[in-house]
Design a protein around this nucleic acid. Structure first.
Length: 893
DNA sequence: GCGGACTGCTTACCT
DNA sequence: ACAGGTAAGCAGTCCGCG
């Protein structure tokens, strides 16, 4: 039986290997051929001038790690193959002697040898010896569904063990780290940084200018300990080194489809590619068109510097596009992973192209390039952290149209007809615009997006492709992995952390959550003049730093640390050893707060430096904002609920202490949320005293974040409006700013906002109130008289969170509308925005495009107007019903 | 059989 | 695939009601 299993295994194994070989990109061959065709040598020469480490991968054919180096002077990518003999491996607590008994392991075709290595077990805080199982091929360790070394060990060992042993006692570590990441960590390589190749060796390039700045930064942090300075210096080096000028091309394709409403399937690629636009940072602007029967020239004009090229065969067109993909070091798309590049690759194969002629490496979820680096901006802008923290929620839908409009003020061309009915120049213009928007999304503000990706690649030690596609928890995980390896620390498995530290102990307010979170102070309703908002800058990262939080330090093994209790919990934290996370996150926080944030606003610095510092502080903001949450996320590799819980508990404690102290100082607190307190008309001395007290007692800074000329609170938490000194208005949480409400109501709300912006004194208010009543009355009357410009103004726009069929518990209104659309043949999926209006007849909703003016349920809209304005009217002492002229009696009728 | 009180679901927001 | 807390609207359920 065992023999049979082995045979089965080896057979499938060889088969997969063969398949893999057939599928693996035939780099060497492709390179030699391309060398002749394009006259560039992608293989790095023995000596290569300074180049940026932009990507890394594993080349299955060569069986080696492969690094892509971008040389900005020639604008070329050079490939550098490992020549140090580094091999994939995993670690285990079984000895070589024990492992030798596992025949499936010893006979595994990918198995190489054992080594005994010294590591530090950070959960136990002690040195340990473990066995390193070295393999010939990363897939032998893990990555295949069956028969991997990491699975074989716990599966087979219990049967051959001397003494009874359960699979849980058998540990395998670091078997899920991607090989090229492991390579990067072990060799201390720094993605995004500048390297030279000297006599075939990869050598980090030292940049004098940047090193000077690193030194200056070190000197800025006078109070830091030697240990902290080490972290600060290493981060600073990653952040201070210059970015290159990028050479890239944006690409967009159009495919002809017989059914215009349906998106063509990029895996089948059944229909012709009729137009491709290329927009390069070198000034190349090309539109490649396929000649087709019965298509007219058209009269549209494209800019004079755009070259229109006609092709009489699709193969020739694709070949021309591929030539560009073989030559640009960076290729930018919007959804190229799922569509443009995938379609081109499949279409080319359908036309009989050889695999080695296709410059695209098609993966399950991504499409990468054999030569350059493909950045799919859709994936990048889709990233919630990027959307919220890097771009301040400036775009709301992740579509080329909306992101383009919000960030560069450029929108897609609206098509009146289907693609099949367009003339050549109409298609060209449409397609070219898409490429242009895509290009500008990469190039605006001095290549902000490219630089942001580069900075994140440096922080996280990831290839640019990966960093632009993965979420913030992966970035954080990877730099933590890097730091573990650097210190020879064993990276614990998630189960071991949970087993050692347990789950959370506090009770969340929200059902289904794992632990208690932040405090929100009950607001004082009304209009308040001169409101100062004080807050803790980066509260959670500060707590992680000051309280030495991390999976190693929380609930540590040392008896003497048990007294060091975290307020409002039964957890304690280590007093003997600094946790890695605390040092890493703490140093990043300090760098942002004390160096990059202020320098990004320092007008005495040159604009380019400020802009670079602004990108860095933005990247740090994104990472810091997630640095606490990851510990409470089950999917995070170093998931540790007590750490997350402790952080939140300390935050509650800190805010509570501040509230008490403010009371002591006789300052009225109007409101507060998590890390902020709103103070009514405080004196300079009071603010000063509160800040000093906080610094002294809590060891954290408390700053004045902003001062409102006046603020308006209702009795609702997370709902207020504040007017700043310069007249700009902060609206928080009010229905009037929510994106799903009808434009009709939003417009009235915005009018009120503008009116409130010009109020300066309490006396101004009386006049403003009258005007606001007028705004509401006007809106009400127009609704009553059905006077709206378009039904679209009345549409509610709600995102479909799930597939329409997925709603089984209830059927919300937007789902009802979505189902009506589906019956009409529309394709709808999770994430789509549904626009619907409220109508009188059952089921009371209708997709906006199917509705007519007279069926609108006006009373529903008036009720909505009412509730939207109530949030502000309460505080102003106004009453909606009185405003619209209803007497008290009428309201009952 | 109907209406009000209540709970749960869903989305969009805040920090 | 970062977290928890809050508001709001609606769907669905339960219960009382001669």
């Amino acid at each position: 039986m065992a023999q049979k299993r082995l045979e089965d295994f080896t057979r499938t194994e060889t088969e997969t290997l063969k398949e893999k070989e057939a599928e693996a990109l035939p780099f060497m061959e492709a390179i030699t051929k391309e060398k002749q065709k394009h006259a560039y040598p992608p293989l790095a020469p023995e000596n290569l001038p300074p180049s940026h480490f932009v990507s890394a991968t594993y080349d299955g054919k060569a069986g080696k790690a492969l690094i892509k180096l971008y040389e900005p002077v020639s604008g070329k990518i050079y490939l550098w193959y490992d020549n140090t003999g580094h091999k994939p491996y995993c670690l285990t607590n079984l000895s070589p002697l024990e492992l030798e008994k596992i025949s499936r392991l010893i006979q595994h075709p990918g198995f190489d040898h054992f080594e005994i290595v010294d590591k530090i077990d950070s959960l136990l805080d002690k040195a340990v010896k473990v066995t390193k199982i070295v393999a010939k091929d990363p897939l032998a360790i893990g990555g295949r569904p069956k028969g991997c070394i990491r699975d074989i060990i716990p599966e087979d060992f219990p049967a051959v063990a001397e003494a009874p042993i359960s699979p849980e006692q058998i540990k395998v570590w670091e078997s899920k780290i991607k090989y090229y990441q492991s390579y990067i960590y072990d060799r201390n390589l720094l993605p995004g940084m500048i390297y030279e190749v000297k006599d075939g060796r990869l050598v980090l390039k030292s940049v004098e200018e940047a090193e000077k700045m690193v030194k200056r930064i070190r000197e800025t942090f006078k109070d830091a300990t030697a240990e902290e300075l080490q972290f600060i210096e290493e981060w600073a080096r990653l952040l201070e080194y210059p970015a290159p000028k990028f050479l890239y091309v944006a690409l967009d394709i159009e495919v002809y489809t017989p059914v215009p409403t349906r998106m063509p399937d990029s895996r089948e690629a059944a229909y012709p590619v009729v137009c491709v636009s290329l927009y390069g940072s070198d000034g190349e602007k090309r539109v490649l068109l396929l000649k087709r029967e019965g298509v007219r020239e058209g009269t549209e004009h494209l800019p004079a510097d755009v070259s229109l090229e006609y092709f009489d065969s699709e193969s020739k067109l694709i070949k021309a596009v591929f030539d560009a993909l073989w030559s640009y070091p960076f290729v930018i798309t919007f959804n190229g992973d799922d569509f443009d590049l995938r379609y081109l690759a499949h279409r080319a194969l359908n036309h009989g192209f050889r695999k080695d002629e296709v410059p695209i490496e098609v993966g399950r979820r991504v499409c990468l390039l054999k030569y350059g680096v493909h950045i799919d901006l859709y994936k990048f802008f889709f990233n919630r952290s990027i959307q919220i923290y890097a771009f301040n929620n400036r775009y709301r839908d992740v579509t080329l149209d909306d992101v383009g409009k919000a960030l560069i003020g450029m929108e897609k061309i609206k098509l009146e007809k289907s693609l099949g009915e367009l003339t050549y120049t109409e298609i060209a213009k449409y397609c070219f615009r898409d490429a242009e928007i895509t290009f500008k999304l990469a190039s605006f503000e001095d290549e902000l997006v490219m630089k942001l990706i580069l900075v994140l690649a440096r922080i996280s030690s990831m290839p640019m492709e990966d960093v632009s596609r993965q979420g913030v928890s992966r970035w954080i995980r990877n730099f933590m992995h890097r730091e573990h390896r650097k210190r020879n620390m064993l990276i614990p498995n998630a189960e071991e952390i949970i087993a050692a530290k347990g789950k959370a102990t506090t009770k969340a307010i929200i059902k289904g959550k794992k632990y208690k979170g932040a405090i929100v102070v009950e607001p004082v309703p009304g209009v308040h003049f001169n409101v100062s908002v004080m807050d803790f800058p980066s509260l959670y990262p500060s707590i992680i730093k000051v309280w030495n939080l991390g999976y190693q330090s929380i609930l540590c093994k040392h008896p003497e640390c048990r007294k060091n209790i975290i307020p409002d919990t039964s957890h304690w934290v280590c007093t003997k050893k600094h946790a890695l996370e605390s040092l890493l996150i703490g140093s990043l926080r300090d760098l942002r707060v004390q160096w990059y944030k202020p320098k990004s606003k320092d007008k005495t610095l040159p604009a380019e430096v400020r802009s670079w510092y602004n990108i860095i502080q933005g990247a740090l903001k994104v990472i810091l904002n997630a640095s606490y949450g990851v510990f409470g996320a089950e999917t995070f590799d170093l998931y540790c609920p007590p750490v997350a819980e402790a952080t939140a508990a300390i935050a509650r404690h800190s805010l509570t202490q501040i509230l008490k102290e403010a009371e002591e100082l006789r300052i009225q607190v109007l409101y507060g949320d998590t890390d902020s307190i709103f103070l009514k008309n405080p004196s300079k001395e009071q603010i000063e005293k509160l800040a000093q007290w906080t610094e002294k007692t809590l060891k954290m800074s408390l700053d004045v974040d902003k001062v409102y000329r006046y603020a308006v609170f209702s009795s609702r938490k997370k709902n207020y409006l504040g007017v700043l000194e310069d007249g700009s208005v902060d609206v928080k949480g009010l229905t009037g700013k929510k994106r799903h409400i009808p434009i009709f109501i939003k417009k009235a709300f915005d009018e009120m906002k503008e009116r409130l912006a010009i109020v300066k004194t309490p006396a101004d208010f009386e006049k403003a109130k009258k005007d606001i009543c007028e705004i509401i009355r006007d809106c009400y009357m127009r609704l009553k008289r059905r006077e709206w410009e378009s039904l679209n103004d009345l549409a509610f726009n709600v995102v479909l969170g799930e597939e329409p069929e997925h709603y089984t518990k209830t059927t919300p209104q937007h789902v009802r509308a979505a189902r009506i659309l589906k019956e009409g043949g529309m394709e709808l999926k999770a994430g789509d925005l549904i626009s619907f209006v409220k109508v009188v007849k059952e089921p009371h909703v209708k997709p906006v495009e199917l509705a007519t003016k007279n069926e609108i349920d006006v009373d529903k809209y008036i009720a909505y107007l009412h509730s939207t304005f109530d949030q502000v009217l309460d505080a102003l002492g106004l009453d909606f019903d009185e405003i619209i002229g209803l007497t008290k009696l009428e309201r009952f009728m």
